[in-house]
Nucleic acid binder design. Structure first.
Lengths: 222, 222
DNA sequence: CGAATTCTGGAACGCTCAATCCAAAAATAG
DNA sequence: CTATTTTTGGATTGAGCGTTCCAGAATTCG
């Protein structure tokens, strides 16, 4: 078996030590309002961090993690290798940043549907999850969970939190009557939506999936 | 983007031309009863084809396609590179053979459950699919569909047929009353089962998944 | 016993991989 | 202006990749 322990621990010591202030968290939590104007002495960056992260996200989404090379990434991001490693530390680093950004964006969009009119909320969420912006590329997080989670605990952790978030939104959109099995129903709805992504990838046309979802939804939400 | 066109077309011309009779189909269809005893002049093989294929299958299952190197494969199979390429032609070749073998085995096992007593058949199928032999590794075919199907049409094709098979078995296990939406219900059940594999990979314990499945199943099958 | 055929071990091939390094460029601070 | 700090481009690194090749070992056929 190939050594996969690259992931944990020894990530780019040079970067982590020489530039500890620039945490770049990439869209998730601790963005310290890194105003883009003047921020110190040195040469300013020639790129927008969110933009290049979004470019990297798209590549991972289209190709998967292992099938994506650093040339793919730097090419799509428009960055030299130096800038890439200075900003993200490693290939794994930019993946983690992309996954966090993706999760935040996706959950935010889903929350709007969950907070909409009660009737139709679940249906709208199912349709949105099963027919994501990525089209046949599916859901970036589901793809990466499938490919990496068993061996890379940080991916698994981000994935677990994301799926919990989806579940919670389903639960909040379900009829609060009969709350004894709301969590289980929400979990089943999540699984149902996620499963359709595999059907889609294998070539099933979207309208066939919508039909199946409607057949299931009518009874699952009651 | 990295050149991925390796897949189609130009697969090991030397092997294909110099040894065209040995099709090795690896467990799927056209096994010409390749009796293991005497089968011609030359030196006999020092390995069992089904055994080494099963070993390769396990490695792909555990690590995924891209993360598996040829050293991983030949090491687990106990084959030299020469024997490997003589038997399977390429890394893609052994994956395809493994997927076909996996699909046949899995569908056969699922058919026994579908043909069992009507009440409980659907539940047994859901539990079996969501808690496969592979444990947290999930389902080999679902893994490979997620990782490869958008770019490798042969994987997509095998996956599509497999999922269609699962759907058909669900349909045959469903109550034949109200047959107007049997196919959609069966498709939804497939998606539900497949989706639980992602939950499992992200770390959700099996009993939580079983609970959600039972909550969904009671109403989905009625 | 040769001759023909087939498998096996292991080295080698060309290439790509993720990651590193360094000097030049571009900004601020005094 | 000079000194300092940071980013950038591009060459480089050593290891690993999938695949090929060939000489020798093992078997059957005449």
């Amino acid at each position: 078996m190939r050594p996969l322990e690259i992931w944990s621990g020894r990530s780019n010591i040079r970067f982590m030590t020489t530039r500890p202030a620039q945490k770049h968290a990439a869209g998730s939590g601790d963005s310290k309002a890194h105003a883009k104007g003047q921020c110190g002495p040195g040469r300013p960056r020639g790129y927008d961090e969110q933009e290049v992260l979004s470019a990297a996200l798209q590549v991972f989404w289209r190709q998967g993690y292992e099938a994506t090379s650093l040339d793919d990434l730097t090419g799509a991001m428009g960055l030299s290798r130096s800038s890439f490693y200075a900003a993200f530390g490693s290939k794994q680093g930019v993946l983690i940043a992309a996954l966090k950004s993706y999760s935040a964006t996706a959950l935010s969009a889903l929350r709007e549907l969950a907070d909409g009119p009660r009737e139709g909320a679940v249906r709208a969420m199912l349709q949105a999850l099963s027919n994501p912006q990525g089209g046949p590329k599916g859901c970036l997080l589901v793809n990466c969970i499938t490919e990496l989670a068993p061996h890379e605990q940080e991916v698994a952790e981000i994935g677990r939190r994301h799926l919990q978030g989806v579940e919670d939104l389903f639960a909040s959109a379900l009829n609060p009557e009969a709350p004894e099995s709301v969590q289980d129903k929400a979990r089943a709805l999540s699984a149902l939506a996620i499963g359709t992504l595999t059907l889609r990838k294998s070539g099933l046309p979207p309208d066939q999936i919508s039909k199946a979802l409607e057949a299931a939804e009518g009874i699952l939400t009651s």
